[in-house]
Amino acid sequence: MSANITIHYCTGCNWLLRSTWMAQELLTTFDGMVDELTLTPGSGGIFEVWVNDERIWSRKDQGGFPEIKQLKQLVRDRIAPEHSLGHSDRQDQS
């Protein structure tokens, strides 16, 4: 499955650098699986990540920013559940 990813970030909060770093991480991790990654400037403290029109992260709802490992897992679970994230993959909790 291919993906369209949007990172919607607040310009007033200066979250552009965080957004571009997360975008780079996702593009590198999911090389060949992402058709489009869009950075969308906004206001009001917004920070949301959308995959194929499904919101997978909202700073307001989740109370902060995702760790990059967590964000990669959320994206992977939607676009390529079989894709290994290597050292960033979930560890079984036994």
Results as ranks from 00 to 15, higher is better:
M1P: 08
S2V: 07
A3T: 10
N4T: 15
I5L: 06
I5W: 01
H8S: 10
G12P: 09
N14H: 14
L16G: 01
R18T: 15
T20L: 05
W21A: 07
W21G: 02
M22Q: 13
M22L: 15
Q24K: 07
Q24V: 06
E25V: 14
E25R: 03
L26I: 14
T28V: 04
D31K: 13
D31Y: 08
G32F: 05
D35V: 04
T38G: 01
L39E: 03
P41E: 06
P41T: 08
P41M: 06
G42F: 01
G42D: 06
G42I: 07
S43L: 09
S43F: 13
G45C: 11
F47N: 00
F47L: 10
F47D: 00
E48K: 04
W50L: 04
N52T: 11
N52Q: 08
N52G: 08
N52W: 09
R55Y: 06
S58H: 09
R59E: 12
R59V: 06
K60P: 00
D61Q: 15
Q62C: 06
G63R: 07
G64W: 14
F65R: 02
P66L: 10
P66A: 12
E67A: 15
I68R: 02
I68E: 11
I68A: 06
K69I: 08
Q70M: 07
L71S: 02
Q73K: 12
Q73A: 14
L74D: 07
V75A: 07
R78Y: 03
I79L: 10
E82Y: 04
H83Y: 13
H83Q: 14
S84I: 07
S84P: 12
L85C: 05
L85E: 05
L85V: 08
G86P: 02
G86D: 10
G86V: 11
H87W: 10
S88F: 14
D89V: 08
D89N: 11
D89A: 11
D89W: 07
Q91R: 09
D92Q: 10
S94T: 08
